[in-house]
Simulated assay, not measured.
Amino acid sequence: MTGELDHTMIRVADIDASIDWYETHLDYELKDRHDGDGFIIVYMGPEDMGDAEAMVELTSNKGQEEIEIGDAWGHIAVRVRDLEAAYDELMAGGVDDYRDPESCGGRYAFVKDPDGHEIELVERDHGSPWSLDHTMIRVEDADEALGYWVRKFDYVETRRWEADTFANYFVDPEDAPDEAMSVELTYNYDGRTYTEADGWGHLCIRLDDLHDDWEQLMIREAEDYRDPESCDDMYAFTKDQDGHEIELIVRDPDAESLFPF
């Protein structure tokens, strides 16, 4: 079971304002939209994104005017060709100055979207410009977190950064293409705990067979959170050791809609 990451879902208060922000500043386009009973879901990504690249899913719930981010959720990172030029372009476009390249040692930078979700800029020579490079989540036990992704999903650790007080571990499916999105697991050494909030939604993994892979996850003792039957056999959800939700879907490339319903 080596499914690649399909999308990262975050919640937003004003769906139209968020769509406009991602279209204006990241050159994203609307890939699909579903207006449900009391909620709206949209998929967005670069216009010419590759098949292995991940989308961002924006979810807006009717009547929810404020989003609480929490600290268990970290950020999404997008790829740019020239870090300084990309940051200057965002500043010229009216994006608030949050963490510029100089304050980050010239290695990366950060901005925030309208709801306060952090977006890291990383310089890459692969993948579509502004495509999702990785999603960062915080974990309370690095050994458990790495073991979870290795045992449950056959992911491998592809790189790491260890500092004096924290470490970042990146995990991917084995032999994943460079343009696929990674998961960044951030572990702080001081034993802190984290708070889940409604701003952070989930990671989503594309599978070959929803039911067979779900059964394999159950054998591997993944959490039985929302099985395929409870989701009308369209998708399923499990959780990692820290409670981060992970959606499981089968994506039909020939379907008219990106949504399974």
Rank of each mutant, 00 (worst) to 15 (best):
G3A: 03
E4C: 12
L5A: 09
I10L: 10
V12P: 05
A13Q: 09
D20K: 15
D20M: 12
W21R: 05
E23Y: 09
T24S: 13
H25G: 01
K31W: 11
D35K: 10
D37L: 14
G38W: 07
I41M: 14
M44S: 00
P46S: 02
E53T: 06
V56P: 00
E57A: 07
E57V: 01
N61C: 05
E66K: 15
I69S: 02
A72L: 03
A72C: 07
W73C: 03
A77T: 01
V78S: 00
D82V: 06
L83R: 01
A85T: 11
L90A: 00
G94T: 07
V95M: 00
D96A: 14
S103M: 08
S103T: 09
G105R: 02
K112S: 06
D115S: 09
D115R: 10
H117I: 02
E118Y: 00
E118S: 00
I119Y: 00
E120D: 09
E123S: 08
R124H: 13
D125N: 14
D125R: 10
H126E: 13
H126V: 13
H126Y: 15
L132H: 03
H134E: 02
R138N: 14
D141L: 00
Y148D: 03
E157R: 13
T158K: 12
T158E: 15
W161H: 12
T165E: 14
Y169G: 00
Y169W: 14
V171S: 09
P173E: 10
P173L: 07
P173W: 11
E174M: 11
D175M: 09
A176P: 06
P177H: 06
E179T: 04
Y187D: 02
G191R: 01
G191T: 05
Y194P: 04
A197L: 11
G199H: 04
I205D: 02
I205R: 03
R206E: 14
L210S: 04
H211W: 11
L217M: 14
L217H: 01
L217T: 02
R220L: 11
E223H: 12
D224T: 10
D224L: 14
D232P: 04
Y235M: 13
A236T: 10
T238N: 10
D242P: 07
L248Q: 04
V250W: 09
D252N: 14
D254A: 13
E256C: 07
S257N: 11
F261S: 09
F261L: 06
